[in-house]
Structures are given as C-alpha cells and as structure tokens.
Design a protein around this nucleic acid. Sequence first.
DNA 1: ATAACCTAGATACTAAATATCCAGAATCCC
DNA 2: GGGATTCTGGATATTTAGTATCTAGGTTAT
Lengths: 158, 158
Amino acid sequence: MNEGVEWALHSCVNLCFIPGEAVTAKRLAAFYELPTAYLNKQLQALTRAGILSSTSGPKGGFQLARRPEKISLLDVVVAIDGADDAFRCTEILKAGPGADSKADYRKICLVSQAMHKAELTYRRELSGQTIADIVAQVEQTYPDTAGNTRRWFANLKS
Amino acid sequence: MNEGVEWALHSCVNLCFIPGEAVTAKRLAAFYELPTAYLNKQLQALTRAGILSSTSGPKGGFQLARRPEKISLLDVVVAIDGADDAFRCTEILKAGPGADSKADYRKICLVSQAMHKAELTYRRELSGQTIADIVAQVEQTYPDTAGNTRRWFANLKS
DNA sequence: ATAACCTAGATACTAAATATCCAGAATCCC
DNA sequence: GGGATTCTGGATATTTAGTATCTAGGTTAT
C-alpha cells in the first residue's frame, strides 16, 4: 500500500484540529517533515475524491470538504491507493487446459472469489471507521495533541 | 500483493487433485504456462513454510505437506507475500512536533491501530478459508475439473 | 554413472512507488 | 493592474520492489 495513505490520514486528522481554515501543502508537509511537492500530490488526489476542498492564491490551501464523520478510512485509502484489490486476479485459468476464452475468470474463479471475499471484510472494516473516530480517540488518549497541533499551525502561520 | 500468491493458491489446489504423488515445478508451471524457474521460487517458499514438501531426484517434485483442511489461505499468503501488513506504518509521528523518540508509534499511533484493526479482519477471513474449502467448491461448481486436471497431469507425465 | 530434480544465491530486467520540477491558472493584496 | 502566493497537472527523474533468468551444487531413482 502506498505510503501516501499514511500521510493523507494524518493530514486529514490534523485538518480536523484547524477547522474552517485553509492550510497550505507546505505547512502540512512541514508538520511531519514530508516532501512538500509529493504530499501536495496526495492532497490533490484527496481533493479530486471530494474529501478535501482546495483554494488557490494567498490565504489558500486545503481543508476538509465535509464533516469528518462523513469521511471513512476507506474513502481515503481509495482516493490515494485506488480501488483495486490487493490480490489481483490475472485470470491464470485462461492459460490452463480447457479454458473458456470468453469467460471472465475474475468473476467465476473460486480462488479469486475467496480472496475477494476477504478483501470485502477489510473494506467493510475500513468503511466503518471515520476520521472523526480517529480524532475522538486522539482527543481521549492524548488530550494535549489537539491544542498542541492547533498552536503549532498557528505559530507557523505568522 | 505478489502475483506469486495466485500461482501458489492454484498450484495447491491442483496438487489436491493429484494426491500422494510428487509433481515437478516444470509440470505445475506448464499447466498455466507460467515461467518454470519463477514458479519454482514460490514453491520453494511454500516448502520453507511447511505447506509443501519436496523431494529431489527423478520422481521428485512437490506435494502437499499436510491435509488441505489444514492449509488456510492466510498460510499461503504469508508464505509468499510475507507477514507484513499492507499498510506500513512509517512512524510519521516521530518527525512531528512533540514526538517521543523512544515511543513505538507502530503500537501507539491511533491511525496505525485503526488500519491494523481492518487488516486483522482480513487475515481472520483468510485464515477461516482453507485449500480444502476451495477444492470442495471447485468440485461442486465445476464437476469436471478434478478429473480433467488429473488426466492432464497423467498425460504430461509420460 | 547419469539424468532428473530441488536449493539457494547471484544477476538482469521491468514496473511501480517515490520525488522533483515547471508552466499555467486562480486568488489575494497593494 | 502588478506582484506574490498557492493550487493544478503533466513531465521527468530516481529509487525500490516485483518479475524473471541463470548457474553451481546437492539429492535421489534407475
């Protein structure tokens, strides 16, 4: 899985701590010492996916496009990493003896189905967790984090 | 995920159709027109994991090391693809402000935990399905496959 | 003894992930 | 209007991981 998923999730959490304000890619990158241009690419992907909204120009930047309760971890994973299953069925059976060249083995191959079934539970679990859940857990487990993060971004702004 | 997982799963299923007999890497590869040397590498990994047993020399080859009911899909995936989570926590928080350099963020980071939780459901689902399950489904859904496969390997042997 | 076969490490090739750069468009502020 | 800031998107370079082959060595059946 793409490392950008980790960056994106943490960035979404951080944006929750700075509501109603656009944050530049540069500042989001500086928070974790990430390469700005590359993080920017992930933020663009989140924007295209409708998870973030962006504004150009001075005072511009990124912010959450909808409430964090409405952003599942799956939304973020799909936006950055794509919607493909980790197990990619290459229709190996097509090369086997007695293969039906017209058949779609991604559908009818039982190995493929079994792997896909597991993948579905993974996605279901990811879609059941939201950015808001993470934020709530952070606030409960590390009560200082929200304030510290807000302060860090406020200071860097000047 | 490594393409070898697909090859390994199908090869294990095929080995179920030819019980008590060692099958060479070459023949297993020929069945799906796979590169022999590379499939051999996956078979070796399965052997190291204790899923297959191998015998050298003429009449040698690979066979299941234990009954297919005792081989879960997770066993095969781990043998080929490794035990690492798809989501790899790079401990991004260590570079953030106020980080604890001694902390193991793979454990305490809530983003990491959330992703890992989903991964666990995936693995649980994979470990709940066995090669025997797949074989049973194949025999039910495609009744000719077992016989055809057996026959193909028998013919090629000569 | 020879041929068939697995083992394991070295090596080459290819695709994907990671990272940077630049020209263009939008926006703010003076 | 003009300059500065920032996002957008495509082009490009770099690095890493996946795919694939090869070779030397060990094991075993005939």
